[in-house]
Design a protein around this nucleic acid. Sequence first.
DNA 1: CACCAGGCAAGTA
DNA 2: TACTTGCATGGT
Length: 223
Amino acid sequence: MGRREHLLKIYHSLFERFGSQHWWPGDTPFEVIIGAILTQNTSWKNVERAIHSLKASGLFTPQGLYEIPIDTLAHLIRSSGYFNIKARRLKNFLSFLFKEYDGDIDVMFKEGGLVLRDKLLKINGLGPETVDSILLYAGGYPVFVIDAYTKRIFSRHSHISTDTDYHQIQTLFMKSLPKDPHLYNEYHALIVRVGKDLCKKRPLCSICPIEYDLHKGFKHGIK
DNA sequence: CACCAGGCAAGTA
DNA sequence: TACTTGCATGGT
């Protein structure tokens, strides 16, 4: 079985088991972007509280967050942890948004995917996972998001080695799978879903839907 | 009590 | 370049 078929098979078995994950939770692309920054190394539960606080402040708009003092912003997002550094990261993004696109998210997403990705990566505080989450889940670009769960699960199941870096893993998925934002959306969300409990501790969990596929002949990871 | 959560940048050698 | 550390709340 080829890589494409195998990755699709894993996807289908995950989808069959867990169903649609309805990602990204958020009412607007703006909210998705803010959530992507706030959820860095942080549970989504704590991020929800922070977003709730931001909404309650009445300033949950690009303009509102652009204008409030950074200390006030830090206070509002307290529950998401790392609030000082995240307040700065939000400010960095908003400064970029106003400087480049007059504060208009829709205008920003008119940029080509590769161009926008490079620009976002230059913002201090936005790394590859945050940027790709923004592109896929807020902008609808066909970009596969890689995270700690993806690395852990797919290395444990021998599809990649433990030292395969972000870009290599992303390339593996994107070269193998059809360039479909909906597929990338659901696949990443399902990986997070299965990583949260099933694949959490054991090197290979017998009840993990991915393991079933593992012993069917797919042995080559990259490198 | 320890450890983790939908990372990233900065410091050190 | 390759490691290590700081950031910080809230749940288990």
